[in-house]
């Protein structure tokens, strides 16, 4: 606040009192500092964008790694089933095959039921953790999508995800053996076991990875409750699909509301055969902190430089 009684301006040097010099100085300062400011702003955006792209690349790599582990989970099941169909069926093969099926159940906790179908589409062995087993029931299962799907694919067939009793996610995986008259092994797989995979993946401090099926339903998440509630994440799926349509290359991380409610930065990859989307999400604060660590240093240096130039200009 100005003190009372000191109304007289400070005595400026003589040369400064010339209006021309003052205008000249103002124009010079403007000419120098405006482009500098503009440059600084542009460079800050550039740095931010670079950091965001780098983060997206890191997140995508993490999603890729997570997808590889989930793929491994599915591959293990496929391999078990492939063993069961490696040999052609014989008339009295069922008892031995039954032991093989039991071994597969024992080795792969995610498999809840196994059915072995012969080349003619007849059920020869059915073993389950809950239901009674059947041997040589000869029930016709040639019309089932799993049987024909696996035969057509000449390899693995993945059914749709469905929720048993409206809660636990299950999926049919079927594998056909070699040859035209090959048998098919059909397994009902409890996807709850993917929890073991996704809950162990650490993304930074609080980042998570989760899986959404092509219909937009959440099938694996570290918070198992969200899966059991059959959470619909079509909106998330749409964002990523739109991004994918926009063009190739690593798209930038998407800012969205996370599965926990707070804003996040998220990236995703598609897991090929079942068509699931594996999504990595990281809280915005954490993601920003990561970016700032890098860009802060550059920005501070530029600010100092700018300040120095500004002083010189004046």
């Amino acid at each position: 606040m100005p003190t009372a009684g000191s109304n007289e301006p400070p005595p400026w040097p003589l040369w400064w009192r010339s209006a021309l010099v003052r205008r000249y100085a103002a124009a010079f300062a403007l000419l120098v500092s405006l482009p500098l400011l503009a440059y600084a702003a542009w460079s800050a955006t550039q740095v931010y964008r670079q950091q965001r792209d780098a983060l997206a690349a890191v997140q995508t790599a993490q999603a890729d790694a997570a997808a590889a582990r989930i793929q491994q989970f599915l591959r293990t099941i496929e391999l078990q089933l492939a063993w069961l169909t490696a040999l052609p069926w014989t008339g009295d093969g069922a008892p031995q095959r039954r032991l093989d099926a039991l071994r597969a159940l024992r080795q792969t906790p995610a498999i809840a039921d196994i059915a072995l179908i012969d080349g003619q589409g007849r059920e020869r062995v059915a073993e389950s953790r809950l239901e009674l087993g059947r041997i040589d029931s000869m029930a016709d299962r040639s019309a089932s999508p799993a049987f024909s799907g696996a035969r057509e694919a000449r390899g693995a067939y993945y059914g749709d995800v469905r929720f048993r009793k409206g809660s636990e996610p299950f999926m049919t995986i079927a594998v056909a053996g070699p040859g035209d008259e090959a048998g098919v092994a059909i397994a009902e797989v409890s996807l709850k076991h993917i929890w073991d995979v996704v809950s162990r993946i650490r993304i930074g401090d609080e980042g998570i990875v989760y899986v959404v099926d092509p219909a937009g339903r959440l099938i694996a998440h570290p918070d198992i409750n969200l899966v059991l509630q059959n959470t619909n994440l079509s909106r998330v799926l749409q964002v990523f699909e739109a991004q994918q349509r926009a063009g190739p290359g690593t798209p930038p991380a998407v800012r969205m509301a996370g599965t926990g409610g707070a804003p996040v930065l998220a990236s995703s990859v598609v897991l090929a055969p079942p068509g699931w989307r594996v999504i990595v999400e990281q809280g915005l604060n954490e993601a920003d902190a990561l970016m700032l660590n890098e860009s802060e240093i550059k920005e501070r240096r530029e600010a100092r430089y700018l300040g120095f130039l500004g002083c010189c200009g004046l």
């Binding site: 906790p109 953790r129 809950l130 009793k165 809660s167 636990e168 409890s190 709850k192 076991h193 198992i224 409750n225 059991l228 509630q229």
Partner: peptide
């Protein structure tokens, strides 16, 4: 109301 009823995972 928001916590799903769980079934045993391992028998």
């Amino acid at each position: 109301a928001d916590l799903a009823v769980e079934q045993p995972r391992d028998i």
